[in-house]
């Protein structure tokens, strides 16, 4: 089995996420059956797949929220499954994660949501610096006016954008997006797609987008990976992936087209 040690030194520098032979099952049901993927520095990989294909499980494994049964996950040179709690916390600071439902803290307003991780992880910052960082992050997503609003007062699209701002405030190297456009109207989807591209250009981040939305995949992905029944069935550019006769991919494409 190829590991991160086996790939050439030049390539090693470039590969920021390396997943090999990852398997995961829940109550005897196999969700991931040996997933392999590599994401290079500055690249935006989109993992496409139907609901229940194990996409969300895959990124939760990457940040150590779940543990795989088999295989290795290497992020920024750290083998995630071998990290202790402290090392994992350190690695997580370099990773941004946008949850499907945004996961904003209900009991805090937007300002507190954004400053929460800053206050805890960058203790040298004073109040003014934190306020500036929060304002800058909100300006990036065009929602400065919501600073003192509670999450319950925001729309779905606004929550996603605040989620992106909260994630970007720590200036992560890697960003993991879990269904960034799920449940949004087409216009807001385009806004979120543009924001994903803007973040990548502005901060030169490496990203992994988990989605079942073809338009999101097409607009944001440098490379697409198709996941089905817990394995990668096709990898390449959008054109390469969908220029195929594989019925699993054709069905997925046609269904999205009808939608």
């Amino acid at each position: 089995m190829e590991t991160i040690q086996d790939i050439s030194i030049n390539e090693k520098k470039e590969v920021e996420i390396f997943v090999k032979g990852v398997k995961k099952s829940f109550d005897g049901i196999n969700v991931l059956n040996g997933v392999d993927l590599k994401i290079h520095k500055g690249e935006n990989l989109v993992v496409l797949g139907r609901s229940g294909s194990g996409k969300s499980v895959l990124i939760k494994l990457m940040v150590g929220l779940l543990k795989q049964d088999e295989g290795t996950i290497d992020i920024l040179g750290n083998q995630v499954e071998k990290l202790n709690e402290k090392e994992l916390q350190h690695l997580r600071l370099k990773i941004g994660f946008l949850f499907q439902g945004s996961a904003l803290y209900d009991g805090m307003n937007v300002m507190e949501n954004l400053s929460f991780s800053l206050i805890r992880n960058q203790k040298h910052l004073n109040k003014q610096m934190i306020n500036k960082a929060v304002t800058d992050a909100l300006e990036d997503v065009g929602l400065v006016q919501t600073m003192y609003q509670m999450p319950s007062e925001l729309s779905g699209g606004q929550k996603k954008r605040i989620g992106i701002a909260r994630m970007m405030i720590l200036k992560p190297q890697i960003i993991l997006y879990d269904e960034p456009t799920a449940g949004l109207d087409p216009i807001t989807c385009v806004e979120i797609n543009n924001l994903i591209n803007k973040v990548k250009e502005q901060y030169h981040t490496t990203s992994l987008v988990i989605t079942h939305d073809l338009s999101c995949a097409k607009f944001t992905g440098d490379r697409i990976l198709m996941l089905s029944d817990g394995i990668c069935i096709k990898e390449g550019t959008f054109q390469e992936v969908f220029d195929t006769e594989d019925p699993r991919i054709r069905d997925f494409y046609n269904y999205n087209f009808i939608q």
Partner: peptide, 17 residues
């Protein structure tokens, strides 16, 4: 409970808290 099911606890964990 609602923080758990809406992934707010996971979000807190990922933000190194």
């Amino acid at each position: 409970g609602s923080m758990r099911v809406t992934e707010q606890i996971d979000a807190m964990e990922i933000s190194s808290t």
